[in-house]
């Protein structure tokens, strides 16, 4: 029998998350012949839409319909999964704010191994799985082995696997709602508070000068505005600049900030973490300026310059102003 792997399908308002069609690709990297089951939890009619959609791609779909699962509170989802999944299962989740909330605790409750933020999967040898991870904000890659003999929960980095658009699953939807069991928890979901809009909408900008921790000091942020003005660009930033309250949250690019789709993106003193890059879409021309030639941003940039931005930015501004 082919090995069984489960993928948790994230969805919102009847739309499946991008990770939904990526996880099956990761599953097949573990066992090429895997029979992959999509697990879809929720409540109401949206749930059936998602289940039917997933049945086209996955070998089977397990549906868990329960009012307690209307919002995917990881603590509630965990209880349902622990009650329903067979022991020693391999469970795949996206490594996003939901997967981070759910994965580690699920692995403990299922008494299985846990591997976070998997960027690639090399395959299995003797019950041991070999995967690739990154450490130190992407500055070092590592091979990691995981003993999956007692099952595993793995969080797969979003975007690293091309989605499976083949629709060659032909699975059936199985209603597992009756097995969900007691779903009471000590954490109660209340509401979503939407992020506030700022004075500029960087999601509409064609040219962005984006500043990161390399700017070193609040007083230096002004030079970035000078450059942006000379270029006719808007200013965006990485997360540490917002954490330090040097710029407003609405200017943050990344998974927990804005998704931007400019033509040109200038990354100034930004290392290039996956959460930052996750907010850059539409394949812009990326220019990276960084004093560390090994910074991961240079792997995704089109043009790179090894320089100290505190010196480089004023010189570039002056040159552009002189055009």
């Amino acid at each position: 029998m082919a090995e069984q792997v489960f993928a948790y399908i994230k969805h919102d308002q009847g739309v499946a998350d991008d990770s939904a069609l990526e996880l099956i690709v990761a599953a097949k990297k573990i066992y090429p012949d895997a029979s992959v089951t999509a697990v879809v939890t929720g409540a109401g009619s949206d749930l059936d839409t998602i289940c039917n959609e997933m049945a086209a791609t996955y070998n089977a779909v397990w549906k868990i319909d329960n009012d307690a699962l209307a919002y995917p509170n990881a603590e509630v989802v965990r209880k349902a999964l622990v009650n329903i999944l067979p022991a020693d299962s391999i469970v795949l989740l996206p490594h996003d704010t939901f997967g981070m909330d759910l994965g580690p605790g699920l692995a403990i409750k299922m008494d299985s191994a846990f591997v976070a933020d998997v960027v690639d999967i090399e395959g299995i040898d003797n019950g041991t799985l070999k995967v690739i991870r990154q450490e130190f904000s992407g500055m070092a890659s590592a091979h990691v082995t995981c003993d999956i003999s007692g099952g595993a929960v793995m969080n797969i980095r979003p975007g690293v696997n091309q989605p499976d658009e083949s629709k060659s699953g032909g699975g059936e939807v199985v209603d597992k709602s009756g097995e969900a069991g007691d779903l009471s928890t000590k954490r109660t979901y209340l509401e979503i508070v939407e992020a506030e809009a700022g004075d500029v909408d960087i999601t509409k900008s064609e040219v962005l000068v984006s500043v990161g921790r390399g700017i070193e000091d609040e007083d230096n942020v002004e030079m970035v505005f000078d450059l942006a003005k000379a270029m006719g660009a808007d200013v965006s930033c990485s997360r540490p600049i917002v954490d330090a309250k040097w710029l407003e949250k609405s200017r943050q690019v990344g998974t927990s900030g804005q998704t931007v789709k400019p033509k040109v993106y200038m990354a100034m003193g930004i290392s290039g973490s996956f959460q930052h890059l996750g907010g850059i879409k539409g394949n812009p021309f990326i220019v990276a300026v960084n004093k560390n030639p090994k910074a991961p941003i240079f792997q995704v940039a089109d043009v790179g310059i090894e320089a100290d931005i505190l010196e480089f930015i004023p010189e570039l501004t002056e040159a552009i102003e002189g055009l």
Binding site: T188, Y189, L190, I192, V193, E194, S256, Q258
Partner: peptide, 12 residues
Amino acid sequence: EIEGGNQEMNDI
């Protein structure tokens, strides 16, 4: 803090 900088409120 969840995707997009939205905030998920919970009692715990």
